[in-house]
Design a protein around this nucleic acid. Structure first.
Lengths: 198, 198
DNA sequence: GCCTGACAGTCTACTTTGGACTGTTCTGTC
DNA sequence: GACAGAACAGTCCAAAGTAGACTGTCAGGC
């Protein structure tokens, strides 16, 4: 309750925001955020847990008693609320986007047509799926602000899905083709981080 | 020219891509990228220069003679081309988006209406401006792949601009108001990183 | 009773950001 | 032609963020 300065990073600040509605564990926070504004506010588990500890250390959160599987709920303190209000009043920082698929298209001349098509199709499916999820979610969101964010999510997914699916390189080549059996999976493609032998 | 493994990070890999069209300095790369796919592929100067050094050390780039203001051009080597081809063939990694403005809206209930309106209006102007820049750029882009990326940029800016501008909280309150004089600047608002006194 | 998968959190290496800092050259303007 | 800005070119570092491997716990199905 003294008067020192807390430097809130954006992730920490957004956690404070989510904790306004009641105590949550790191796990819950992470999955909550991922389903609501995860589209526009990516963060990782490690980051969440780290910030929770820092925030608790700074007195902006209070850690509750650990439950079943080391579940550790955190609740926001008065100081936390105030810190959040101060943070949210600042002008928003600039956007960060990293869409590797756009890089793939940009350098499309360097990719096997087959591969590019598959990546585009996968992206289309994923954006469509996410769009569907958002449409469902919309039924249950009352808060007009959250709804507005959700609307953007829906339109964003629509745009990206349409874009990926309607590019000429996304279209099936003239003749039908077999093979490709295994590699059409839709699961989140984590990849292209490493490797480049020579 | 031996056979060890190079691990390319996405930034480094995209630099290799850009260097296919000829030698460029870090500065040129940075500004080139910012103007072309910067919208979907954010990176910073420090990162660019660091990766250039690493790539040169790994033999994927060759540093040219330094020119006027320590200008140091880099050109891609055969090994670099091959590394790029290998990288670009991997399935694209997952997207990263961080749009602080969406967080502002999501937590809109916690912001002064006046502030929120100003932030939304500023965003609208910025997206419109970027859209205009892209429209101009489109005239000069021949490559169909780059054009496709650009089209997405245009539609993205259209979407975001429209969204920010048409939200109810973006509208002028009923009565006209003076004040607000200084704070309507359009320059990129870097902010809301630090501060939260108590 | 024990297997499997979802849950919960930890840890670490690496990547990326933001911005301060040092110089250099160019472009006026007087 | 001197000199003040502005744009150029690159360096550096701390802080923020990501990816994914790792440990362990509990619930339900067989």
């Amino acid at each position: 309750m003294s008067r020192w300065t807390v430097t809130l990073n954006p992730t920490a600040a957004s956690l404070l925001g989510f904790l306004h509605r009641g105590p949550l564990t790191g796990w819950e926070l992470q999955s909550w955020i991922e389903r609501s504004i995860g589209d526009f506010w990516s963060l990782t588990r490690s980051q969440v847990y780290r910030e929770l500890k820092t925030l608790a250390g700074a007195g902006l959160l209070r850690a509750g008693a650990t439950g079943k599987r080391d579940r550790q709920p955190y609740s926001i303190t008065a100081a936390g609320r105030e810190a959040f209000r101060t943070w949210i009043a600042q002008p928003p920082a600039s956007d960060i986007l990293r869409l590797p698929l756009v890089v793939s298209v940009f350098f499309g001349a360097h990719i096997e047509p087959d591969l590019l098509r598959r990546y585009l199709q996968t992206a289309r499916l994923e954006h469509d799926a996410q769009r569907a999820r958002f449409l469902t979610l919309r039924e249950h969101v009352q808060d007009p602000f959250q709804r507005a964010a959700l609307e953007l999510g829906i339109e964003y997914e629509t745009l990206l899905g349409r874009w990926a699916g309607s590019l000429p390189w996304a279209q099936e080549a003239g003749a039908p083709r077999a093979r490709d059996a295994d590699s059409n999976r839709v699961g989140k493609p984590r990849g292209r981080s490493r490797a480049a032998k020579r």
